[in-house]
């Protein structure tokens, strides 16, 4: 194998676009490997040219176990292509080691930022505006994810190919800081959301002689604003910490609400 690079930017973009197969190739045995085969098929063909035997071996290697957050996985897969471009079949073991070795750390970064922080912040804005009948938040959410998920998914192949995996270690520090900073933004937004989107009211009133004291109107709407939503949040938070499953909590809330309606302590 010669040392000159065979893949152009256009080839890498093409691999990135074919990588949009992503989780559609997911299965329990090899996870995302079928999508890796699909994405790399043409780039590998260009690397190996007429050497059918080597191409086949390389495809078999691509079909081995792989799973990483798709929008950032291109950094690893692109770096792997660069290694095969340099050393052909001799690089196959190293490519698989690289993919499996680093897929955990790169997914940690990708999941935290792209699957949790962005959907949290932009999803809550979309929902808050949606409740008022305004779709703008949902469209802003879509535009943000277009850049941070889809564009990154395609572009990361070129970064991985050109800069290799040193990119991951360089970015790791900054991304840890970014993730923590996003946590601050997220907490501010969640603090604002709890009293406005969690809706829990009680019609209960305390009657002493002639005077009736409505808990909701005279206490929770005036002095302890958002008290019931906060209590509910704390209880569910504790349950989640105790590893109670989300589905059980959903059922629990529905049963609690039905009881509240039947017995008249919620309304």
């Amino acid at each position: 194998m010669s040392n000159e690079k065979k893949l152009t930017e256009a080839d890498l973009r093409r691999a990135g676009i074919r990588w949009c197969m992503s989780v559609n190739g997911y299965n329990y045995e090899t996870q995302l490997a079928p999508s890796v085969v699909f994405a790399e098929a043409e780039a590998l063909k260009k690397i190996y040219g007429d050497d059918d035997e080597a191409y086949r071996k390389s495809l078999e290697n691509a079909a081995r176990y792989f799973n990483a957050t798709p929008p950032v996985a291109g950094i690893l897969l692109g770096a792997g292509l660069a290694m095969e471009d340099q050393n052909g079949n001799d690089a196959l073991e190293a490519v698989q080691d690289l993919k499996v070795g680093l897929m955990g750390s790169i997914s940690g970064i990708g999941d935290a930022l792209i699957w949790i922080m962005i959907p949290t912040i932009f999803g809550s804005i979309a929902a808050y505006m949606g409740q008022e009948g305004n779709p703008a938040g949902a469209l802003i959410f879509m535009a943000t994810m277009f850049v941070c998920s889809l564009c990154l998914k395609v572009k990361s192949w070129s970064w991985g190919y050109n800069f290799g995996t040193q990119l991951i270690t360089t970015l790791a520090d900054k991304i840890a800081a970014l993730s923590e900073a996003m946590g601050v933004l997220g907490l501010t937004v969640v603090g604002a959301l709890i009293p406005s989107v969690v809706k829990l009211h009680t019609p209960l009133a305390i009657t002493v002689g002639e005077v009736s004291f409505s808990l909701q109107e005279q206490l929770f709407d005036k002095i302890l604003v958002g008290f019931l939503p906060v209590v509910a949040t704390v209880i569910v938070y504790r349950l989640l910490k105790k590893k109670v499953s989300t589905n059980m909590i959903i059922l629990g809330i529905i049963v609690f609400s039905l009881l509240g309606a039947a017995l008249g302590f919620l309304g």
Binding site: G183, V184, L187, G226, T233, L239
Partner: peptide
């Protein structure tokens, strides 16, 4: 009306709550 509480609680368990709880209070 009550189900959104699940999302709120799940978020809190992801976020650096202990370190930055004051920002939760500011937003609230």
């Amino acid at each position: 009306g009550l189900l959104p509480v699940i999302g709120m609680a799940a978020l809190l368990s992801y976020m650096p709550l202990k370190q930055y709880a004051s920002y939760l209070v500011v937003g609230f």
